[in-house]
Each structure stands twice: as C-alpha cells, then as structure tokens.
C-alpha cells in the first residue's frame, strides 16, 4: 500500500495503452452469447415453462389457470373453423378505422391550433378539459347516441386515439427550436413555407410518438368497446369465454391482443425509425 502511495506522489496519473483499451469497450466475454434482442425473451419463456410444469403437476387448477399447451389447443380449435380469423379481422378493422379517424382529426386540429395562436387560445382550454374526462365515461353516451353498432365502437376508439396524437403534435409544433425558425426567416420563407419546410419536419418526432401512444390507446379502447356489446371480435371472444366458463378462451384472446398490439406498434416503430433514422434519433 505504501508502495502505491509513493507512486502517486511521483506521478498523479499513469496510463498505459492497456488501460485505454479497457476504457474503450468491454472485451467480449468468451463462451455462449445470446443476441441482445433475444435477451428480453428469456424471462417470458422461463415463465411459460414454469407455468406449464405447475399445470402438469396439478398445482394450478386446469379450469381456472389452463396450461400453455391447453391454450394453444384452444387457439388451434378456434382457428380450424375460420371463426378466429373472423374475430381478428373485425377487431383489426375497428382499431384501424378508429385510429385513422382519430389520428386524422387530431392532425388537422393540432395543425390549426399550432399555427394560429388565436384559435389555440380559443380551442385549447376546451381540448385540455375534454382530455381530462376518463374515456370510459363516453361509453354510455355513445351507446345512447349511436346504438350498439359499429359506429359507437369506432367513435370510442377514435376518441382514445385523438388525444395523444393531438397533444403530442401540438407540443411538437409549439416547441420547435426557434433558432431553426430564424434560419427560415433569414431565407425569407413565407408562413406556409415555414410550416412545410421547418415546423412540420421539426415536429415529426413528437408526432410519431403521439401516433404510437394513440395506437396503444386504440387497442385499449377496442377491448372496452367490444366488451360493452359486440357479437364479433376478440373482445367478444373474451366475454364469450367468461360466459361459458372457459378460461383458456379468455387467455387466448389476451395473448392475441398482445400479439396484434405489438405487431401494429412494430409497424409504426419501423416506419418512424425509417423516417427519423438519418437524424440520429431512435424511437
């Protein structure tokens, strides 16, 4: 110890090339190495295995907590009649229609409130107030207005999608770097050009964030919409499973919701990264 103390007195910092290499990056550990993307799969796979084992050992009651293989069986059985494909198609169609309507309305409105301060002062407080209404509170009203048909479900999903898209796009527009706007001014861009060439591209990252969380809410709301009254769709399948006491059907529906929710999000994520990748931004 006293030896090293003497050394520090002589020279405060001593670096050899080996030290620098160590700072630059960890040396890869030898032996088996899982790709980083697959690392996230380890826990779920382990859980499923444990679950299956517990079910087979009879610790989990088969009717309340069916084993993974039983759920896969249920899925296969549902698929055989083409019934499952129909449910999925209905749910997907509802989510996508609601998403498109909600996102389109939000985009137009945020574009207007974002570019016209007067309209913003007029409209934005109302939007903020509407936003704080729990979305499920709309359900009875929409049912009353539009009945139990498609339109009430799509309206509910649209409302869910609308707010995150609107809020993110608006904040994206309002927080555009004023220094970049100034460059536009230096080059004598008129208001429309400024919006098209500076403000919209600058707001794109927050817009994409808004679209993704909007889609997430769209999936949440389709469940609510289908549970409250539907004769087709994955949400209906869940209710059906509940009515007929088949837990495996409910869990199979949950798995499908997770799967399609993730898949549609992946599409948006990929599209976003393609649009933003060259900025050095990753969604």
């Amino acid at each position: 110890m006293s030896n090293s103390h003497e050394q520090t007195q002589e020279s405060l910092v001593t670096l050899t090339t080996a030290d620098v290499e160590a700072v630059r990056g960890p040396t890869p550990s030898p032996g088996f190495k899982l790709p980083r993307q697959l690392l996230g799969l380890v826990l779920p796979v382990l859980l499923v295995i444990v679950w299956e084992l517990l079910a087979r050992a009879g610790i989990l009651a088969a009717n309340w907590f069916p084993a993974p293989f039983a759920i896969a069986d249920t899925l296969l059985e549902l698929m055989r009649g083409g019934e499952l494909a129909r449910h999925i198609a209905y749910t997907l169609a509802r989510v996508l229609t609601g998403f498109l309507i909600g996102a389109l309305a939000a985009t137009l409105l945020a574009g207007v409130t974002g570019s016209m301060p007067l309209v913003r002062r007029l409209l934005d407080p109302t939007m903020q107030a509407l936003r704080s209404i729990p979305s499920m509170a709309w359900v009875p009203l929409f049912l009353l207005w539009m009945g139990i048909h498609e339109s009430s479900k799509i309206a509910l999903i649209s409302v869910g999608v609308f707010f995150p898209v609107y809020l993110n796009l608006l904040s994206g527009i309002l927080t555009v770097d004023s220094k970049l706007v100034e460059v536009g001014q230096v080059f004598k861009l008129d208001k429309l050009q400024l919006v098209r060439r500076v403000i919209l591209p600058a707001a794109l990252p927050s817009y994409l964030v808004g679209l993704r969380s909007g889609l997430g809410l769209g999936w949440m709301f389709v469940v609510a919409a289908e549970i409250m009254g539907a004769s087709r769709g994955l949400g209906f399948l869940m209710i059906d499973g509940q009515m007929t006491g088949r837990a495996s059907v409910i869990i199979a529906s949950i798995v499908l919701f997770a799967l399609f929710g993730k898949l549609t999000d992946l599409v948006l994520e990929q599209a976003g990264n393609r649009l933003l990748g060259h900025r050095g931004v990753v969604l």
Binding site: K179, E182, V186, K188, V198, P201, A202, L204, H278, G280
Partner: peptide, 20 residues
C-alpha cells in the same frame, strides 16, 4: 426585414437535422 442579399452564420450551425 431579412433579405437574401444578407447571409447569416450563427454561433450554432443551425443545420436542419432532417436534411443532408
């Protein structure tokens, strides 16, 4: 007001990150 006859270089480069 601003004019194309006067170019400006700022302290920060102020390049648009979405353009080459």
């Amino acid at each position: 007001g601003t004019g194309l006859d006067r170019g400006v270089v700022f302290q920060e480069h102020r390049l648009f990150p979405w353009l080459t």
